[in-house]
Design a protein around this nucleic acid. Sequence first.
DNA 1: AAACATATACGAAGCTTTTCGTAGATGCAA
DNA 2: TTGCATCTACGAAAAGCTTCGTATATGTTT
Lengths: 129, 129
Amino acid sequence: MKPTDSELEILHVLWANGPSTVRQVHEKLSQSRDIGYTTALKLMQIMYEKGLLSREEDSRSHTYTAIVSQEDTQRNLVDRFVETAFRGSASKLVMQVLGQHKASRAELDEIKNLLNDLNRDAGRSDESE
Amino acid sequence: MKPTDSELEILHVLWANGPSTVRQVHEKLSQSRDIGYTTALKLMQIMYEKGLLSREEDSRSHTYTAIVSQEDTQRNLVDRFVETAFRGSASKLVMQVLGQHKASRAELDEIKNLLNDLNRDAGRSDESE
DNA sequence: AAACATATACGAAGCTTTTCGTAGATGCAA
DNA sequence: TTGCATCTACGAAAAGCTTCGTATATGTTT
């Protein structure tokens, strides 16, 4: 189930802040763009119907929680994106991202470390061919 | 101008094969999914109106060409994607992609080389802060 | 020339996404 | 208890995407 861009905004708020009411989510969203309260409400209701969110009915308002995890969601999104935008070539995507976005040295080091591990694995499987 | 998923399919065909008629594009698309001829035609007409494609009117049919380059398009898509899916963190995206997709040793080496260059740059700008 | 194959143009239906207005319920305050 | 603030529910409009049917033009074949 692919969340839309608006739904993704809401998921990010819930992932960052944990279970929240519509009001809380709306306040966060308002910081970065113009959006009506009932718009946020409607979005979250739809996401509830879709099974993206769960909710607990408190006395007056509802508290919503993201059911889908950030990890799973991002993995799915990446899969689709690699497919549609890069015809399945993940390494092309990586090259593109690294080329056009700045990263701190710490981040680059982190990526390098991961890369070293992967390189060992690739080496192993290459030898077996 | 963000191409839709369907439009991206067509762009990929044109990028790979060069200027093509609707029939040629439709035949390529048919290999991977069910799509009517007039559907492909309509999509390409819309893309022409949007300025994504140019066309040359031959005697009987039209020959379409991608106006937007693959590089520019992918750069734009990556920008949007980093923003919406990873809240602007390009390195998170890279880590995610590297973790979940296999790459050959050659590809990994290529990425590593790029990374070394970037690391030098990051080092330089770090020192100036 | 008549019939046929194949091209484009066009309109429109069906769906999804985003947005908001309005109505009705409910807790709280005066 | 009456009214105010605030909540949910609901409907619906506007826009964009995808799809295809039908009409019409135009080469090609017989």
